[in-house]
């Protein structure tokens, strides 16, 4: 393998890693931290993507001069919309299923079907895509043989930002402190005066909002259709489970490991075989470490 190919492979791996991480971050909070299994998480990403699509449409018609920066508004808006949707969802739906994980799974699967059909009825079954800002198209030519697409570089930067943000929220703010307290010991948190219902709703909303950001960013690398969410959901779950639930660091590492392994294997064999190998590998690792790579050592 020549140097150029190695660098390109590494970059592809890092790029896929940031995409996986962006997908899994929201789920790491909702599923990992709160233990809520939300099969409609992918549809929340689709909601973010469709929000971005509508924002792009709006800018195209009313403020074409700002088309180059619409993405920033779109990402913020996608976060806002899915955050509010997540809040309402938790208050009106999810909270009735706490402590019934299998029922949550089936009910949210039902919800995901309803949302998919809603998207199909509203936006049509065909794919929609958004125009890429001019400063994001093209590639950065490092050397003769190495070309790195700008939009991927942008995603890498943005993911780093989002991941840092999530870390700061969870570890440096009151909400984060409360969220972690509630997940560790609900009864005790309640006893010391934390409004656990509110914390649940906000934490779930935060996870949903992250899904919205992910969906919004994915419009830069692919088009969106009503079934988009389903493509992501299983992958996201695998990343979170592999890393070990209740471990944000674990999610980061497992995203990195899976992404590097996948890009390397894709270089060696066909795409579908690579995917199959990864899944089997993950299952084997889970067999030896049932709680994931970074399982917290504490009593439950």
């Amino acid at each position: 393998m020549s140097f150029d190919i190695a660098v390109t492979q590494l970059f592809n791996g890092v790029s896929l890693f940031t995409i996986l991480l962006l997908m899994a971050l929201g789920l790491a909070i909702v599923f990992g931290l709160m233990g809520v299994i939300n099969m409609a998480h992918g549809e929340l990403m689709a909601l973010g993507a469709y929000t971005t699509y509508l924002t792009a449409k709006f800018f195209e018609e009313h403020m074409p001069s700002l088309m180059n920066v619409y993405l920033f508004f779109a990402i913020a808006l996608a976060f806002g919309v899915t955050f509010v949707f997540g809040y309402v969802l938790e208050r009106g739906f999810i909270r009735w299923f706490y402590n019934r994980p299998l029922d949550t799974l089936l009910a949210t699967w039902g919800l995901s079907l309803v949302l998919q059909q809603t998207y199909r009825s509203v936006f049509g079954a065909q794919e929609v895509s958004v125009p890429l800002a001019t400063w994001l198209s093209g590639a950065w030519t490092v050397s003769e043989g190495i070309q790195l697409p700008l939009n991927r570089i942008f995603i890498i930067g943005l993911t780093a930002l989002v991941a840092a943000g999530v870390y700061l929220i969870l570890h440096k703010t009151r909400l984060g402190l409360r969220a972690r307290a509630v997940t560790q010991n609900r009864a005790m948190s309640s006893a010391v005066g934390i409004d656990t219902n509110r914390v649940d709703a906000l934490t779930f909303a935060l996870g949903s909002g992250l899904a919205g950001i992910a969906g919004s960013v994915f419009t830069m690398i692919g088009s969106t259709n009503p079934g988009t969410g389903q493509l992501y959901i299983v992958d996201s779950f695998i990343v979170v489970v592999f890393g070990g639930v209740a471990s944000l660091i674990g999610t980061v590492f497992s995203g990195f490991a899976i992404a590097q392994a996948q890009t390397t294997l894709e270089y060696l064999m066909s795409g579908s075989m690579a995917k199959v190998s990864i899944l089997l590998l993950v299952i084997v690792v889970l067999y030896f470490r049932p709680n994931g790579l970074f399982a917290p050592k504490m009593r439950s």
Partner: peptide, 15 residues
């Protein structure tokens, strides 16, 4: 149009 609404609703309703 209605099939997925129905199936999704059914999942929720049954649970």
């Amino acid at each position: 149009e209605f099939w997925l609404f129905f199936l999704g609703g059914l999942f929720i309703f049954v649970v």
